[in-house]
């Protein structure tokens, strides 16, 4: 379970995340939505300790990420499919992660199988397509069999087969009692796999509700999203011409 309390991050005069509070409970897929620059990635990076909050707290199962003795067993994270050494094979990449926790080689082979990377596991990741990189990132997130998963845009670059696979995977993970925090710009996709959504804009919480909750209003999730973020979009195409979308 992820708990974020009054989380704030400032870079000089710019406030990226502004007093954000929400929970990603176990047994559910929590969709994390917001326009570009809303602070989604910054929030995720603070939860996993890569960036220090200016104030507020983020905990996983009640513990600060940096205080977890075996973080990969608690939280599986995929933030950027390009976080690999291009000269290293997928297998060696996962083995390097596994060694830090004494995770056996058999588990590395298992996640390679789970993500369908068997045929390319020995190839240098520099030759991977974005979709293969995403699968490798997800393999890394699953490595420690964690109770919480944080996935930033996991379907980005995946083919339709891959999108379907991720949709089933996250639902399955939640059904097993895990907490899944999933960010995506594909609102349709989130409507199909999320149980609840957290919507943010300009670093602030705009909505935190279960799908179908009256708080999101009538209509589709996309309608709700566009209505909620109407005042928070920083980069809108054609804004000068009346906001054609």
């Amino acid at each position: 379970m992820i708990q974020v309390r009054a989380l704030t991050k400032r870079y000089g005069p710019h406030t990226a995340v502004d007093g954000l509070t929400f929970t990603a409970p176990p047994g559910a897929v929590t969709g994390f939505l917001g326009p570009n620059g809303a602070g989604k990635s910054t929030t995720m990076r603070m939860i996993v300790g890569l960036e220090r909050p200016t104030s507020g707290t983020a905990t996983v199962d009640g513990v600060r990420y940096a205080d977890l003795g075996a973080p990969l067993h608690s939280v599986g994270t995929m933030l950027d499919a390009r976080s690999v050494h291009p000269g290293r094979s997928a297998f060696r990449h996962l083995m390097a992660m596994a060694r830090t926790h004494g995770i056996p080689r058999s588990r590395v082979e298992e996640v390679i199988g789970l993500t369908g990377l068997e045929s390319v596991a020995g190839r240098r990741t520099g030759t991977f397509s974005l979709g293969m990189g995403q699968r490798l990132g997800i393999a890394g997130a699953l490595l420690g069999d964690p109770g919480t998963l944080i996935l930033d845009e996991p379907v980005n670059g995946l083919d339709p087969d891959g999108v379907l696979w991720v949709r089933h995977l996250v639902k399955e993970l939640a059904a097993e009692g895990r907490a899944v925090l999933l960010s995506s710009h594909l609102v349709h996709e989130l409507a199909l796999c999320a149980d609840r959504v957290v919507v943010i804009g300009k670093g602030r919480l705009l909505a935190d509700a279960a799908l179908g909750d009256p708080a999101l209003g009538a209509g589709s999730l996309e309608d709700a999203y566009l209505r909620l973020t109407a005042g928070s979009v920083e980069y809108r195409a054609g804004a000068a011409g009346g906001g054609a979308r």
């Binding site: 996993v48 300790g49 890569l50 990420y65 940096a66 973080p71 994270t77 976080s83 926790h101």
Partner: peptide
């Protein structure tokens, strides 16, 4: 190579 993200996720 941006690998630092993955490394420090494993060793926070």
């Amino acid at each position: 190579t941006k690998l630092a993200h993955v490394t420090f996720l494993a060793v926070p």
